[in-house]
Simulated scan of single mutants.
Amino acid sequence: MSAEQETRAVRCLVAKVGLDGHDRGAHVIARAFRDAGFEVVYSGLHRAPEEIVQAAVQEDVDVLGISILSGAHNTLVPKVIEGLKKYDAFEDTLILVGGIIPDDDETELKALGVAEVFGPGTPMEETIEFIRNNLPERA
């Protein structure tokens, strides 16, 4: 963590993209992040990739956690990544995906720039430690 990141709270956007209506996991992780001292913004359900990008840019988040259980991760996550690149926010944002993601798809998502994929049952502390250890340096 940089000196600036040590003096300000980590800002996280927990996002639900697409038509996925399963949000229990997103609420659980948002609460865990908050309890860990992170500032958390929750997107709400059924957001388009561009809406997620706009929220991430406007909120100046350090971490974008995309919760997706719809199976549309190979379509929607790349659109979010491309949008972040368009706004020069990709390099400054740690992108995480949570959900049931097949191993082959996880490899593809990581090749696009997703830092880590967390499946069901991942201990909250593991996710929180990953964030603390992998935050991008802010300019």
Rank of each mutant, 00 (worst) to 15 (best):
E126A: 15
A26G: 13
I66Q: 04
E137C: 02
R8T: 15
S67M: 01
D35I: 07
I68K: 00
D103M: 15
I100F: 06
T75L: 14
K86E: 15
H22T: 07
D35Y: 11
T127C: 15
F38G: 12
R138D: 06
V53L: 01
D88H: 12
I29R: 01
D35P: 08
G65R: 01
D35A: 10
L96I: 07
V10N: 01
E59G: 11
Y42A: 15
S2R: 00
F90Q: 07
D23E: 14
A32I: 09
A139F: 08
R132T: 10
A139V: 02
D23Y: 05
V53E: 01
L94V: 05
G98K: 00
H73R: 08
V14H: 04
D105F: 14
V53T: 04
P123G: 06
R24E: 03
Y42H: 14
I29S: 02
L69E: 05
D62Y: 02
V40G: 10
F38D: 14
M124C: 15
D88M: 08
R47A: 02
G119R: 04
P49C: 05
D88P: 05
P120A: 14
F90R: 08
P78R: 03
T122Q: 15
I101D: 03
D105W: 09
G99N: 06
P49T: 01
D103V: 15
G44W: 03
A9W: 00
I81N: 10
H27A: 13
D104Y: 04
N133F: 00
I81Y: 09
V63S: 06
K86H: 14
V14P: 09
I100K: 08
D20M: 04
D23N: 13
N134T: 01
T107D: 12
I81S: 08
D92S: 14
G65S: 10
A9E: 12
G121E: 11
L64S: 08
L112A: 07
L84F: 05
D105I: 12
G119K: 03
P102L: 04
A72W: 00
A30Q: 01
V53D: 04
E6F: 08
L69Q: 03
D104F: 14
E137I: 06
